[in-house]
Design a protein around this nucleic acid. Structure first.
Lengths: 108, 108
DNA sequence: TTGCTCCTCACGTCACGTGAGGTGGC
DNA sequence: TTGCTCCTCACGTCACGTGAGGTGGC
């Protein structure tokens, strides 16, 4: 299946500039161009782009995602488990912040 | 009370560079320098720095914080209420992300 | 003189946003 | 030719991080 850059962006939910950054970071690349010169991707790219975006949301930087692939499975799992801990921490901080903000709002 | 930049940073929990950014954004400034040429702040600055940091955590950019002061009280409250909504949204997203990440970890 | 802490620039970082300038088919 | 969508740079943005180069008292 041929997917254009525009379609890829819509399916993944990121901007063209983001995909460009993924490619510059060496995380993925276009399969080529179609006869009109449009950048073309396949379903593998789609899955890869989704994964990159997901790992980014977990808190990985692009270069961390790059090196993550070279690690043994166990180390990868540890890395992700660590990010999950960070997310739990962030969740608690966010809850605290909401409470503080509500108090601040009342006192204003 | 005279507070040095270093002390201010420790009390607020931000870096010198952050205070420098607050000052460049026109949000606060040092009271002057002591006889050794050290930047000196007072308790007003301390409270201001804490407030800036708090509003930043709520999601305000420095220039938004700058303009926030010029707004009438009601508009300020609206702005903060909006940020609280964003935080609630972020909390939910974080919760979703944690669940997804846990599933991802199992399947790995 | 050495060592310490402070100062003021100013370039670097990260992941994009936002044009600029150009191409190709209708 | 006009209008549309796409392309590839490349500067700008945000809130700092991280030195560089200099000062002043002990």
């Amino acid at each position: 299946m041929e997917i254009t850059l525009r379609e890829l962006c819509e399916m993944v939910g990121v901007s063209r500039r983001s995909i460009q950054c993924y490619e510059k970071a060496g995380l993925m690349r276009a399969q080529g161009k179609n006869k009109y010169g449009y950048l073309i991707y396949d379903e593998g790219s789609l899955e890869r782009a989704r994964q990159i975006h997901f790992l980014q949301e977990l808190g990985f930087e692009l270069k961390e995602i790059k090196s993550l692939n070279t690690l043994p499975k166990e180390a990868q799992k540890e890395g992700i488990a660590e990010k999950i801990e960070n997310l739990r921490h962030r969740k608690k901080e966010t809850e605290e912040l909401i409470k503080q903000a509500e108090r601040y709002l009342k006192e204003l």
